[in-house]
Design a protein around this nucleic acid. Structure first.
Length: 682
DNA sequence: ATAGGGTTAG
């Protein structure tokens, strides 16, 4: 396994020869040139003393040995110094690479290091270790340098060694190295501590980080700005937001220079604590203090705005970032895809995806999954298929259960039952068991296709797989009932009763004609049920229940449910009145709930008319645009024909999509004529 | 790039 040092290093000599052939000089430069004396033609540059005759660049004659005198203060000298430094640095990086891939045996490591020659300096050790990633060989290399170098600042090579251990998230070894430092009488400093603390943080052991921070004073160290920054991060990671913020306060009162990285850390902490305005406040505070934002700040902000579901703010920050001349990084794009994807800003998300592809940036499984989930949400079937193909051909990531789950959802939502089943088979062949998301999609798929028995079969698979239904799944099952023929409903009621007995009972009261119901039992049980489920599914449950009522022509029950919804604040601001306009807001209502709300609103209007209340000049119904691609007809379309049936004088506003408006005069005469008809009918 | 912070998440 171990590559011999020479095989790794040979190309380096060759490539650098090309450069050094053009000017050579015999002495006066320590490193790296002497290092390779035996292997290559002593490429040395004289930057001091003896004025030699300056010669033109003789690159046509690479073999000619000649000296070039360069004034040490000239820009040319600076350039040469820089170049020779670059050369040394590159050489050491190559050594570090060989060490990384070398056997973790003393003999092998020492052999690689022997190619450095005898005249190594402290800086060589630092640069080499700093570029390594293999813990085991790094520890051997450390020994080598300790044996061979008179170290004036031994703490430094310990600190870079600790960095290698941190790269490997090896806190145990880091702690051992710390003990060894103490044994050798090497005094740890802030760099030592901040490295170990961040190592603990990266190992997901924030308590350990805190432990190390607290023992810092006992070693005569006062935390400085970087140590504070690392600790703020560690406290944030530990979920101790208060401690993080109080450290920030302390750093501020102690007048530490707080730089962009620390602000980015604070933004991340606020972001993961869900305090998104806190993120923006920190950002403002930072700018007020005259600290220029950097990429980390922008990326943390973008990430936070994504979590906050504020894609428009992400967009603004991104624009600002670009205007300030920053080049988006992988992290920037990832944050944007998440922000746009989750918020169904599909055009924006797909634009970013395209840009990443153009730049040759690789997407992770998660980013692909985010895009696919978004396509599933919005109904972008063809795009999803494309993205999935590109994902497979990328060669860099394998579809996982999330990926398959989104694909099954896409097939399910577009009613492609056999494709959904085929994808499920692919998924199982790839070694993934169906999860709750997949089964949720499947019951929707079968439900939509009217295959009630398959819904029941899929429901029964749940317990076979050791899965419990949960509120989302149960909600989708309830939604299946809204699409199911009356004679099949009892099959699903049995499932619902297993999933959530209270819900099962409420539905049974609606569906089962034979159940004897006590006075008011339905409303009481429905209210208890809706109160018992978490807020994020309440509206869905309520909408579905109302839809079932409407389908069964039980308008009174529907009104009761809508009433519960209003009382429990599941629906807010449905009916509003200003001096100039009365409105009915139907945007987040299902069709049944919307029709029920219209019914109630109309009786309210009738009542107002009876009471002789003054109508405003305008009355309006807002259905929203109904852009969800899977529903063939949005709420707007259905409402338009329904209003026509009612002879209602509402007409879609040409300038406000989704709004149906009418005037005071038209509304009153319509309501009056309806009342006259009712009287006739009675 | 040249001894310390920052991430890659559902």
């Amino acid at each position: 396994m171990a590559s011999t040092p020479s095989s790794t290093l040979t190309p380096l000599y060759e490539s650098n020869n090309i450069f050094f052939n053009s000017f050579t000089s015999p002495h006066n430069f320590t490193f790296p040139l002497k290092l390779y004396k035996s292997s290559i033609r002593s490429p040395q540059v004289s930057l001091q003393g003896q004025p030699h005759i300056s010669q033109p660049n003789n690159s046509q004659n690479p073999d000619r040995k000649s000296k070039i005198w360069v004034n040490p203060k000239s820009p040319r000298a600076t350039e040469l110094k820089q170049r020779s430094y670059d050369f040394r640095y590159t050489s050491l990086v190559k050594i570090a690479e060989s060490l990384d891939s070398c056997n973790p045996l003393k003999h092998d490591v020492y052999n690689v290091l022997a190619t450095l020659g005898d005249k190594i300096v402290e800086q060589d050790a630092v640069v080499t270790l700093n570029n390594m990633c293999n813990s085991e060989t790094a520890l051997l290399a450390l020994k080598y340098f300790q044996e061979r170098l008179k170290l004036s600042k031994e703490v430094i090579i310990y600190n870079v060694t600790l960095k290698v251990l941190r790269k490997n998230k090896d806190l145990d070894r880091a702690e051992k190295v710390f003990d060894e430092m103490l044994e050798r009488g090497v005094k740890p400093d802030n760099v030592t501590f901040s490295t170990i603390i961040s190592c603990a943080r990266q190992c997901n052991l924030p308590e350990k980080a805190i432990e190390w921070f607290e023992k810092l004073p006992s070693f005569g160290c006062e935390p400085d700005d970087v140590t504070y920054s690392v600790m703020i991060d560690a406290y944030g990671k530990a979920g101790n937001v208060d401690m993080a913020l109080s450290l920030y306060d302390r750093a501020r009162t102690e007048k530490w220079r707080i730089d962009a990285v620390t602000f980015a850390t604070l933004i991340r902490i606020y972001g993961s604590a869900g305090n998104f305005d806190g993120c923006l406040n920190v950002y403002e505070e930072m700018k007020a203090l005259g600290v220029r934002p950097n990429m980390t700040v922008y990326n943390s902000l973008l990430d936070a705005m994504g979590r906050a579901k504020r894609p428009w703010q992400a967009k603004n920050i991104y624009t600002e970032m670009i205007n300030n001349g920053f080049e988006p990084s992988w992290g920037t794009y990832a944050s944007l895809i998440r922000a746009y994807g989750r918020a169904r800003y599909s055009e924006d998300a797909l634009k970013i995806y395209k840009e990443m592809k153009e730049k040759g940036l690789e997407l992770s499984v998660m980013l692909y999954n985010t895009l696919l989930a978004m396509c599933a949400d919005v109904g972008l079937t063809d795009e999803a298929v494309n993205i999935f193909e590109e994902m497979k051909s990328s060669g860099t990531c394998q579809p996982d259960s999330w990926t398959y789950s989104s694909l099954i959802t896409i097939n399910s939502c577009s009613g492609k039952v056999s494709e959904a089943e085929a994808t499920l088979n692919d998924m199982m062949e790839a070694g993934f068991e169906p999860n709750i998301f997949v089964l949720t999609s499947l019951i929707q798929c079968y439900g939509k296709a009217g295959r009630t028995d398959d819904v029941v079969r899929t429901f029964d698979r749940l317990s076979d797989l050791g899965l419990s239904p949960g509120e989302r799944f149960t909600g989708c099952l309830l939604n299946v009932l809204t699409q199911t023929a009356k004679e099949d409903l009892h099959k699903l009621t049995i499932c619902l009763e297993k999933a959530n007995p209270k819900l099962g009972y409420v539905v049974k009261l609606l569906v089962d004609e034979e159940v004897v119901e006590e006075e008011g039992a339905f409303k009481k049980n429905a209210a208890e049920l809706l109160d018992s489920v978490t807020t994020d599914v309440r509206k869905a449950y309520c909408n579905c229940l109302i839809d079932i009522c409407v389908n069964l022509n039980k308008l009174e029950r529907a009104c009761e449910l809508l009433d519960i919804g209003l009382t429990l604040n599941i629906y807010t601001d449905i009916m509003s009145r200003t001096e100039t306009q009365w409105s009915l807001q139907l945007k987040s209502l299902s069709l049944g709930a919307a029709l029920t709300a219209l019914h109630i609103w109309m009786s309210d209007l009738n009542k107002a008319l009876e009471d002789g209340e003054e109508f405003p000049s305008l009355l309006g119904i807002n259905t929203g645009h109904g852009k969800h691609k899977y529903s063939e007809k949005g709420l707007a379309g259905v409402f338009e024909s329904h209003l026509k049936e009612l002879n209602a004088p509402f007409h879609e506003a040409p300038d406000k999509a989704g709004w149906f408006l009418t005037t005071k005069v038209a509304a009153t005469s319509w309501l009056e004529s309806r009342r006259a008809q009712e009287v006739v009918a009675v």
